[in-house]
């Protein structure tokens, strides 16, 4: 479906890293919205399922010049070249797909058979494998939402930009005879929860949505843009070292780039 401007929708995010405080509300909002399982010990971050993960990055300088910054990382919903995001094109069973209608990279848990090729392909570590059977202690399964299906052991899952909220919003719109959504009708759980208002979500192709202008901020950057993943999550930071940390540069390259800008 196309938006009023005639362009296909392209949902994306702009995260203001100056505002992000690393509080973790987005992570929990995501887990609680999307029935993300938990284990008794989640301290091994490499088998801990967090669709949204907040990285703590540092400028690497010694005391007292140390600086930290927090960087929330959902799935980037890479467009790659024409929707061939790194993970989508490698999935052998079409369990993950790129929708030209919304620009969202889907993950169909019941189709996935757990080969993990997509995880190897994703440089953002946005994909998580269910190494363990999801178990909810007795009674706790009452808090599960019926809008998102519960995943089973042995498959890969990841952030869906709370796609079920899009489905619900579209249901309501269709009920009211509309085919368009207002910006506020479809927001991800993390965006909604962020107490700092650091996350903005919307249609990157729609000038009426806040993200349309925000992504043009001269301090905006995307993670690992040089790889050609064409991600749909933008970050804004006023700190140069943070922007530099968004990608890899060989010695002197970043400095040259900065000089060229001036």
């Amino acid at each position: 479906m196309k938006n009023e401007q005639g362009k296909p929708k392209k949902y994306g995010m702009v995260v203001d890293l100056d505002k992000c405080t690393g509080c973790g509300a987005c992570m929990v909002a995501c887990m609680s919205e999307n029935n993300v399982p938990f284990k008794a010990d989640e301290s091994n971050k490499r088998d801990s399922i967090t669709w949204m993960r907040v990285y703590k990055i540092t400028n690497g300088k010694p005391f007292p010049d140390t600086e930290n910054c927090f960087l929330p990382r959902p799935c980037m919903h890479c467009e790659g070249q024409h929707g061939h995001s790194p993970c989508v094109s490698v999935c052998p069973a079409t369990a993950t797909d790129y929708s030209t209608e919304t620009g969202i990279v889907s993950q169909i848990y019941t189709r996935c058979f757990g080969c993990r090729y997509c995880m190897g392909a994703c440089p953002y570590h946005a994909r998580h494998f269910n190494w363990w059977d999801p178990v909810w202690p007795d009674g706790m399964e009452k808090s599960l939402s019926p809008n998102v299906s519960v995943r089973m052991r042995g498959i890969v899952e990841k952030c869906s930009f709370c796609f079920h909220r899009y489905q619900a919003a579209m249901d309501k719109a269709m009920m009211e005879g509309r085919k368009e959504l207002e910006e506020s009708e479809y927001q991800t759980s993390c965006t909604q929860a962020c107490p700092s208002g650091a996350i903005t979500f919307g249609d990157l192709n729609n000038p009426k949505h806040a993200v349309y202008e925000l992504k043009k901020n001269p301090n905006a950057f995307r993670l690992l843009e040089r790889l050609g993943t064409n991600p749909k999550v933008y970050y804004v930071s006023s700190r140069e070292w943070v922007r530099r940390a968004g990608d890899n540069y060989i010695k002197g390259e970043w400095e040259n780039k900065q000089n060229a800008k001036k």
Partner: peptide, 18 residues
């Protein structure tokens, strides 16, 4: 009905899955 998948040129999976 709209073909929105890059992979299959059919409907994208998220039309009917959650």
């Amino acid at each position: 009905v709209k073909a929105s998948s890059v992979q299959t040129e059919r409907d994208a999976c998220f039309v009917c899955h959650k």
